[in-house]
């Protein structure tokens, strides 16, 4: 990971009096999967449409591998593959004809072998010579990925790529993406599904009302040892347990909840608390910590943004 593949500088889109996208700056590095996370209407799709030149920018610049997408549109687009919202292909053509269509639009020669290779990658061998109107949503999505990666783009942009996919399809989709990044492609995905992003991305930018709220790596977000989490101790006698812990572990307060005592402590403190309980003669049946998900973080951040 190193050089930026995609860079946004102060990207802004004004519609009427509101900035749908407001002074957005971030960069996507080589070989990473970058998530654009935000509630519906946060400006994710508008951002993507500006990057690929479907809509005009009110302000700011976008560059792909150092090439400005406004000044050198053709050169920049050679390096991008994208699905914007649903991949709407030509239904009256076969999947293969659709791929030939988009292969012809690449500025480099895409061989028949390459098309076949991509078809194998997205596992559409069986249906590729059937008309697209006979395809299921999942198959269309896969064909959409195929047209986006045909020309081996440096950057793959996918807008809500898992919309309409079943869990199996989503799992497979993640696998494709991992495989692609191994080949050196950077991926930018947008989604409003938080858990989805957590499984898929290396880094996530959270945007709300067109503004960038935070960029963090997914590992930072979830595996922070020093961070306070709520830990539940399942014990025989909750009042005894509460008494045993009253001496110093109770900064965040101890709550009793149906045979459980709950404390907000750091991960490091769990063994100590357990030791204190055991030494006080409290029988402990189970310990569980609620891992903070990206969702909690996301909600926390977007709430802060609203305030």
């Amino acid at each position: 990971m190193g050089k930026p593949v995609l860079e946004l500088h102060g990207l802004t889109k004004k519609l009427g009096h509101t900035n749908v996208v407001d002074d957005l700056s971030f960069s996507v590095k080589e070989g990473e999967i970058f998530g654009l996370l935000g509630p519906n209407g946060a400006g994710k799709t508008t951002t993507i449409r500006m990057i690929v030149g479907l809509i005009s920018k009110t302000g700011g610049r976008v560059s792909v591998k150092g090439i400005d997408t406004h000044d050198h549109f053709v050169e920049a687009m050679e390096k991008i593959g994208a699905i914007v919202e649903n991949p709407e292909m030509y239904k009256f053509l076969t999947g293969y004809q659709n791929l030939v269509h988009f292969a012809r639009m690449a500025r480099k020669n895409i061989t028949k072998e390459r098309i076949d290779e991509v078809v194998r990658l997205v596992e559409l061998e069986e249906a590729i010579h059937k008309k697209v109107k006979t395809y299921s949503l999942g198959m269309r999505q896969r064909l959409g990925v195929a047209q986006a990666i045909l020309h081996r783009p440096a950057l793959l942009i996918l807008d809500e790529p898992t919309n309409g996919l079943d869990p199996q399809g989503i799992y497979e989709f993640r696998e494709y993406l991992r495989q692609l990044t191994k080949e050196g492609t950077s991926v930018m995905v947008s989604s409003h599904l938080l858990s989805e992003m957590q499984l898929m991305c290396d880094r996530v930018a959270i945007i709300q009302k067109g503004k960038l709220i935070d960029i963090s790596s997914v590992n930072d977000l979830t595996d922070d040892a020093a961070e306070q989490t709520v830990v539940q101790f399942n014990v025989e006698n909750t009042s005894e347990a509460k008494k045993a812990l009253s001496g110093g572990y109770s900064e965040g307060g101890i709550t009793v909840n149906e045979g459980n005592v709950e404390l907000e402590i750091s991960r490091d403190a769990i063994p100590e608390v357990n030791k204190a309980l055991v030494e006080a003669g409290v029988r402990v049946y189970g310990i569980s910590s609620q891992k903070r998900t990206l969702e909690d973080k996301f909600l926390e951040m977007t709430k802060a943004g609203e305030a």
Binding site: G53, A82, V84, E85, E88, Y90, A106
Partner: peptide
């Protein structure tokens, strides 16, 4: 058809 989006993001 919506295919305009796939058509206009080509080089």
């Amino acid at each position: 058809w919506g295919s305009i989006k796939l058509l206009l993001i080509r080089p």
